[in-house]
Design a protein around this nucleic acid. Structure first.
Lengths: 222, 222
DNA sequence: CAATATTCGACCACTCTGGTCAATTTAAAT
DNA sequence: ATTTAAATTGACCAGAGTGGTCGAATATTG
């Protein structure tokens, strides 16, 4: 009886769900893992936040581990397609490059806030149980990010009286500092509701100073 | 009988201990609270790390709360006396001021690593049960730190073609960035065993560039 | 109507929690 | 040497929370 059985991976049950429900559960789980890390995250809190019965979580995923692995995979794909793929890694001007990175990351983050929060947690976590393939992919993502930030920058545009590598770092720290401080100020608010225009203006103000200070001056007219 | 009884606060039992043992227990507790925050910190792990029986912890302190409060108080006093009190809040030159802060903080941190790690945790934690007095003192410490970093800086030394407030932030972010990155690179190692000389040299290299770039040029000869 | 796919939450064995306390060792006082 | 007091231990407690199961109820489908 039933020689040819429809074998479906359990996780497909989840993927066949209507998007709305999938999203609710994913958000709840991402938030929980982001807030507590793998070990201390609670499946009970996840189901409560997602508004589903305890049984359903283990109907969609065989275990906490599989749920975690799914979330990591999902996050990697999201970051890749919604952020990294859109970056122009050829732009040689450092400030242009970093501005682009900042803008694209912000755009991606607004629509996938939990994913980015979660990613900064699992990128550091190293005692979470992950299938080898995913662990490798995390490493690759880190490297991609690194390349996008450091590779192919034309340092010859910097002022000649200073070590270009040092100038490079100073510019990076400045832009990072602005971003971090802005994000801290805005934390708690819903990013999607914020009008970023004035913050971008402020940002460009900083960039102008950085250019004036760290780039070779090219014809200083009044 | 025994009308005049020697009433001692329980915590004094701890303070009458020999310094060595006090220190061992304090370090274990500071590390545990720093790593997990108040709620998730485990008294079991503390006594194990400190090498004492479970009973002793509650012989010295009546509860986890009291232990936590003691550690906060101890940390505040340490930071005040070993760091803040030594800062010259009058130095008007921003880079001099921040250099001084970096150096003094580093010196204090080398000899009280756990205290500083713990402090950055309890300064953000806001659902830990603390006697009102201490909560106030934490606020005061934050303000002192803020003043030491921002107050009385002579911004007129900055280049005239840029908003001095922006320049101020750029310099701060640069120095913070260097510090953070260094600390991250050195994390895990025992700070006391590290020779910081080359790092200070590197640091001064950055400061020279910052001065050259952001300060008003005063007679550019060569 | 029957078969199948979903959904629920009570329940399980287990771990860990902050805290207690009877019993023991150590030190001090007489 | 003997009494008294202080210091120290870890087994133990009730309670909370853990990841995960499962029988029963409900929806959906053929």
């Amino acid at each position: 009886m039933c020689v040819e059985m429809e074998v479906i991976a359990i996780v497909e049950r989840f993927e066949n769900l209507e998007e709305r429900k999938q999203r609710t559960i994913r958000q709840a789980a991402l938030a929980e893992f982001a807030a507590h890390g793998y070990a201390k995250a609670s499946t009970n809190r996840i189901v409560k936040a997602a508004g589903i019965g305890k049984g359903m979580l283990f109907y969609y995923f065989t275990s906490k581990q599989e749920l975690y692995a799914y979330l990591v995979k999902y996050s990697l794909e999201t970051i890749q397609s919604r952020f990294l793929d859109r970056v122009d890694g050829k732009e040689p001007d450092m400030i242009e490059r970093l501005t682009q990175l900042a803008r694209l990351k912000m755009e991606a983050q607004i629509e996938n806030e939990e994913v980015f929060n979660f990613s900064s947690v699992f990128m550091q976590e190293n005692d979470a149980p992950l299938p080898d393939g995913l662990a490798v992919k995390i490493g690759e993502l880190k490297q991609t990010g690194y390349r996008l930030m450091y590779e192919g920058i034309d340092k010859s545009r910097f002022r000649k009286d200073a070590d270009p590598d040092k100038v490079f770092h100073l510019i990076r720290w400045s832009i990072d500092g602005f971003q971090q401080e802005l994000l801290a100020k805005l934390s708690g608010q819903n990013l999607a509701e914020i009008d970023f225009a004035p913050y971008w203006d402020e940002f460009y103000g900083y960039l102008a100073i950085l250019k004036r200070s760290f780039y070779e001056t090219e014809g200083e007219s009044s």
